[in-house]
Nucleic acid binder design. Sequence first.
DNA 1: CGTATCCTCAAACGATCGTTTGAACCGGCG
DNA 2: CGCCGGTTCAAACGATCGTTTGAGGATACG
Lengths: 204, 204
Amino acid sequence: MNSSGSTKERILGAAEVLFAQRGFDGASLRQLTTAAGVNLAAVNYHFGSKDKLVEQVFRRRLDALNASRLTALAKVAGAPDTTLEDVLGAYIRPALDLSHDGSGSLFMRVLARAFAEHDDNLRQFLSANYGHVMRQFTAEFARLLPQLSKPELYWRIDLVTGALTHAMSGFGMIQRKSDVSEHAHREQTAQHLIRFAAAGLSHP
Amino acid sequence: MNSSGSTKERILGAAEVLFAQRGFDGASLRQLTTAAGVNLAAVNYHFGSKDKLVEQVFRRRLDALNASRLTALAKVAGAPDTTLEDVLGAYIRPALDLSHDGSGSLFMRVLARAFAEHDDNLRQFLSANYGHVMRQFTAEFARLLPQLSKPELYWRIDLVTGALTHAMSGFGMIQRKSDVSEHAHREQTAQHLIRFAAAGLSHP
DNA sequence: CGTATCCTCAAACGATCGTTTGAACCGGCG
DNA sequence: CGCCGGTTCAAACGATCGTTTGAGGATACG
């Protein structure tokens, strides 16, 4: 099927697709290697085990997503005229960009699946690779919403996270009308999410 | 382990726990029947197959949840002085009550898992048993938010659903302080969710 | 007592899983 | 050429999965 790129990259690509479709346990190495057009043993040869492969699938996208989010946050954080929408945009737009280009859209679904599964190993891994990003965003939210107590703020951030994860994992559903450009559609989606999140965060 | 109730009920109880913890595929019939204290073959004898068992696990809680939500909705729907908070309360409070009593809390996690898995069979089943409830609530939301276009309303309801599903699946985290009663804590949680959802639905 | 019905049990079935193995292939270098 | 490190290959490994089987226990009724 897939016949471009190195063996490792073909495995990573096929894994992302199948993990999103059938879950980490549901996608077998035999389905995966067949889809990638490589031998069954290639996964253990190049990655060591299936669990290590799962980690690499996350790492490949998460590193880029984290860097992109932090760069966008750095541009707006700390300034006196920063708005809630600015910070939310720094969080949401990089994920939308990832969802936009090709197979990246499936990764958000993989991420949503990982959230729903309360697997401890995976949560530890996500916390180690995701935690510092969330902490920086939380600090900026706290600065912009000084009227909220800490428990209250955490509550709202948790709810916003749930809404965004849910929305971004279902991006197949939100069809773009043919008379709007790809870029305009993405901006429209971003506005939806940002305004919703801002309203949920800042209501009295 | 579990030794109360009939064999069928013991299986259903253990299944709910293990499905929430390890997912539908992750929980094996051998773990399940061992936890329930019944023989391995009892699942296929009483339910026919593992898939049928999954259906029954959903049916047992979903029927009660749906009925409770529709009853609560009927009390407020259509009236001229109904508020958005009233309708949201009719949706949220029955789920909180379910989360409150014993093993029911795990069911919301099972539900969240089913949402994240994009399995077609399960989605069809949920749509058949859940669809009419969502449709009634959507109609009432449309009545109370006439300024929103249909696509806009669906967008916001989808985001609210994501936030609530996410929140209710993680109810282990929200610890009650010892100086507030169980009932007061639940009411506090309901207020959080309702206000957040109302803000997200009705923002300009 | 015999027997019929419902249920439980240990054991086995075939299928599929992740992983390992050892031989075969292949480009580059002495 | 011969050899060698990196890679791919078919085949097999043991484990675990959902499901089926047939014998046996329990209870109620004639």
